[in-house]
Design a protein around this nucleic acid. Structure first.
Lengths: 198, 198
DNA sequence: CCTGTATTAGAGGCCTCTCTCTAAAACAGT
DNA sequence: ACTGTTTTAGAGAGAGGCCTCTAATACAGG
């Protein structure tokens, strides 16, 4: 009933992610994406309302992809310490498997123009965040982390520390070393072990 | 013997840092900097060879400012564990005192156009890095961190973990909580304490 | 006061990017 | 074959940013 598409949304987003990974969000221009897949600029505008929408989709698809497995890992084990370690491992393993998307994740939503997003895109971002926060909060309660510093320490151990390890290597353009997952898990365990002692 | 300057280099860099802090490196345009201080664009070009040079100076002045106190903190105490904790505290305290520069530091040199820097700027960046690496390496040896994973764990404890804490708040636009320094020091201590146990 | 120099002042060219608009193309169903 | 719909295809306007260039300006020293 209609002409078949030569360039679909996923293909364009893939190209945009690649551009963002090795050039930062500023390198994601409509012209660059079009050229990367060999399409005229009109085809990109047919899929996305504008550059703002494209950047929002790049960010949202990547974070949602990441958060999907992350929330799963957070609830993967009845023992909260083991669940935390599994989550930390997941962050590193996911980044190893998806280095370009990991490079996107090292930026923030603001770098992808969050201030100008549509209400729909903003809502999607908040929805994903609240779901992840809920899973972290549940784990925090299971670990007895009741006050703000303790909750923040948990977040550091779960997400920020693994991401830092990833950042150090991805930003340098090198692949993650083989011991990355083990190192991350040890650090996370160390941060959780001493939490009750203080 | 000459007309006195109305806009000096430091003033222009201050404006550029402010723009970068709340708009990312992309917001640092020659026109924006000129407008921010009320100067014509020609005055900006009189101080900087071009946008590439301006971005490089923004990054280098900020990192050098940060590294100055950082290397001092690394050698501030003969006991390596105490020196490490002092360094971690310094990272947070410096960010609290200089929130705009801290926001710049959360990006990377690549985001400030490192690929197009002059040889001179690149050399300055490497010089600062090697000095800092040397101080970290000395501390690593004092702590018995000989292999790659142990050295990386030390770097995480010293710099990356404090920076993560800063990132979480600065990126959200909020000030650092009062307990930030204490929390950071506890986390750093926990990571170092268990290092020998593994 | 006169001269030399560093700086301001801003107009204007060039380039890139965003976005719009029109026309053509390719296919499914009748 | 015809129709309707989606998509490609690409030209072109408008805006903004980088950079250059020339003229004017303000001061120090003789």
């Amino acid at each position: 009933m209609a002409r078949p598409p030569r360039f679909d949304t996923g293909q364009l987003l893939d190209a945009a992610v690649r551009l963002a990974a090795d050039g930062g969000p500023a390198a994601v221009t409509m012209a660059a994406v079009a050229q990367a897949v060999g399409a005229p600029s009109g085809s990109v505008y047919h899929r996305f309302a504008g550059r703002t929408a494209l950047l929002a989709e790049v960010w949202l698809r990547t974070t949602e992809h990441f958060q999907e497995g992350c929330t799963a890992a957070l609830g993967s084990d009845p023992d909260p310490v083991r669940a935390a370690c599994a989550t930390a491992r997941y962050v590193v393993a996911w980044s190893r498997a998806h280095p370009e998307e990991a490079a996107v994740l090292l930026y923030g939503a603001r770098d992808f123009g969050r201030a100008e997003w549509s209400a729909e895109h903003t809502a999607r971002a908040e929805s994903g965040n609240t779901r992840l926060f809920a899973a972290v909060a549940a784990l925090a309660e299971a670990l007895g982390a009741t006050d703000d510093p303790a909750r923040e320490r948990l977040t550091l151990a779960l997400v920020d520390l693994p991401m830092s390890l990833v950042r150090r290597h991805v930003r340098g353009g090198r692949p993650l070393p083989p011991y990355a997952e083990d190192l991350t898990e040890q650090c996370t365990a160390a941060l959780l072990r001493d939490m009750h002692a203080v």
